[in-house]
Every structure is written in C-alpha cells, then in structure tokens.
Computed example of a mutant assay.
Amino acid sequence: MPLIQLREIIDGPAPVPAFNVIQVEHAEAIAAAAEETGASVVLQISENAVRYHGSLRPIGVAALSVAAVARTPIAVHLDHATSEELVREAVRLGFGSVMFDASALPHEENVARTASVVRECHEAGVAVEAELGEIGGKDGVHAPGVRTDPQDAAAYVAATGVDLLAVAVGSSHAMLTRDAELDFELISLLYKAVPVPLVLHGSSGVADESLAAAVRAGMRKINIATQLNKHFTASVRTVLDDHPSLVDPRRYLGAGREAMSAEVARLIRVLEG
C-alpha cells in the first residue's frame, strides 16, 4: 500500500487516529495495529522527538519507510513544529502534512508566520495544521487553558489558509490520567463555525467514552501519544523485572512494541465506535 497524504483520508467518513512516533518500534507497532483493524492512520513525529534523535532525518525516514510497506494507508505528519526550517526539512523528506505551532506567539505574529508557512507548503502540495487556543500540558502543568472561540477560529482559518485546526476544548498534553473534561458543546459550535477539520490534541488524557463523543461532536483527527508510551513502558518494565539478567534489547523492546500495538488497535476501535 503506497504512502498517502493526510488530506486523502481527513475528508473521509471515519475519524483519523494520529499516533506519535519516538522510535522505529513505535512506527512498527502503529502500522501493525492499522493492518489488523484495516484503519487509515497517521504516524506523526513531534519537534521533541526530532530533538531526541538530533535531527528529523533518521526517525523521519524510518517512519516513511514503515508507512511505504504497510498493507493499509498510512500518512506521515510533522507534529508541533515551531521552526519554519524544520517544516521545510519535513517537506523535503516527503511528509505529506505538517503542524506549524505558533500558538504561543502574539496573535498577529501567529497569523503572519502561519500564513507564510501555509503558502510555502501549499506550493509543495503539503497540508498544514495549526493551533488556536491553549491546549496546555507542554510544560507539565495541566490547567484547562484558554478555550478556542468559534468565531476567532473561523477568522484565523480565513486569514491563514490552514487545512486543519487544533482547538482547545478541555484536553491537555502528556496527561497520565484519563479524566480530562471536554466541552462537547464548544466542539459542536467549532464544528459548525470552522470550515476545516478539527484536531483534538492531548487525547491520552481523555476517557474512551469521551473520545467517541468528541468524534460524534465533530472532531476529525485525534492525536494520541502518552497513552501509548504508558503501555510500551509498562511492558518493558515487566520484562526487565522478570528477567534481570536480560541484555538483548530485542526481547524487551519487542514486548513493548506488542503491548503498544494492542493499545493502538483498541483505541482505533474506540474512535470508530
């Protein structure tokens, strides 16, 4: 199955699960779950993951390669990039979509820089996601943050030309508990006001029933990272605790990969209802 672009699946009838990749085992686990369920998914690599590897190319090429040989459509996406140069590198490598995150900047600068990135990416046939509002959790503090106003969101999309919009509706990044309280009325209002697909960040902190409800209310792309890492790490820890003399990383990383893949498949089914 050839590597696809996010725009090829975002307008379809099913929600689009987007899972973050830190190492190649993550990409393999997600692809295996996508093949098991028959779902189209997104492998996304964040700026933090790029920093961990020292550059985008090693993990970016690995993710593109995993997607290219998968038996179900998989897109590769750059997540939470704050640097225009990182966006350009992703485009050069063959990513079909990017998120340019200027949400921490003053509004006028956010609009100007995002619009510039959109123009450049659209010339290359690459879709752009942006964020409006304060989703929170990036600094470890899980406050509700500033919710996205529907009219402001519509105006922002018109001014920038973005293809997808991440909105603040009560979730928070990097939560270890799954008790975030989403504002479903706000999601519905945003869905009616904003002419592009909506993205839910911080979905790891959202309970299963609320994730399904968010999709019904209008969310299209659902980003999940921490929840997968919890399962991966728990499995690795169990193997190492049970086998203290073990030194072959394939044994414990393989177990982590299997555990993560099972959780990805389960979450795909939750989102599909």
Rank of each mutant, 00 (worst) to 15 (best):
V157A: 08
V66L: 09
T148L: 04
A68I: 02
G140M: 11
D152S: 10
R57C: 07
L228C: 11
A217N: 05
L105M: 07
G218M: 09
E108A: 15
K192P: 06
A33W: 02
A29I: 02
G60A: 04
A155G: 05
R250K: 14
E185C: 07
G137K: 00
A159E: 15
L228K: 11
R178L: 04
T72L: 05
F19C: 04
V91E: 00
Y52G: 05
A90I: 04
N229E: 14
V91T: 05
R71Y: 02
D101Q: 01
G133Y: 06
A112F: 08
V196Q: 14
G12I: 00
A234Q: 15
E120S: 06
L228M: 15
V98S: 00
S55P: 05
I268Y: 10
A212K: 13
A90R: 00
G133S: 12
P58L: 12
S65I: 02
T238N: 05
L176S: 14
A168N: 07
D208R: 09
G137A: 03
E85C: 00
D79M: 00
D183Y: 13
R216V: 06
P244I: 10
M175V: 04
A154Q: 12
G96P: 01
G205M: 03
D11N: 14
A158Q: 15
Q23G: 10
F184H: 14
L165A: 10
V24C: 11
L189A: 14
E35W: 06
D241G: 08
T37E: 15
D208W: 09
E134L: 14
E28R: 15
A155L: 06
Q5L: 02
M175R: 15
A153H: 04
L267K: 13
P249Y: 10
E85G: 02
V128R: 01
L78K: 00
T72E: 12
N223H: 12
A207W: 08
A225G: 13
G161T: 02
I135P: 02
E28W: 05
A29K: 03
A255G: 13
T226A: 13
R237L: 12
K192S: 15
V270E: 15
H231E: 12
R257L: 05
H53W: 15
M260W: 06
S171T: 06
T233R: 15
A207C: 12
D149S: 12
R88N: 11
A81M: 01
V157M: 10
P58D: 14
N20K: 01
F95E: 04
E84Y: 04
V199R: 03
L271E: 08
L189I: 03
Y191C: 13
L211P: 05
A62H: 05
P106E: 13
I224A: 03
Y52L: 11
H122P: 03
L3I: 08
P106N: 11
G161H: 01
D183M: 08
H80L: 05
E8K: 03
V239G: 11
V128Q: 01
A265K: 07
S203E: 08
P73A: 07
V162K: 01
A130Q: 04
E181D: 08
F184E: 12
V196R: 07
K138F: 10
D11G: 15
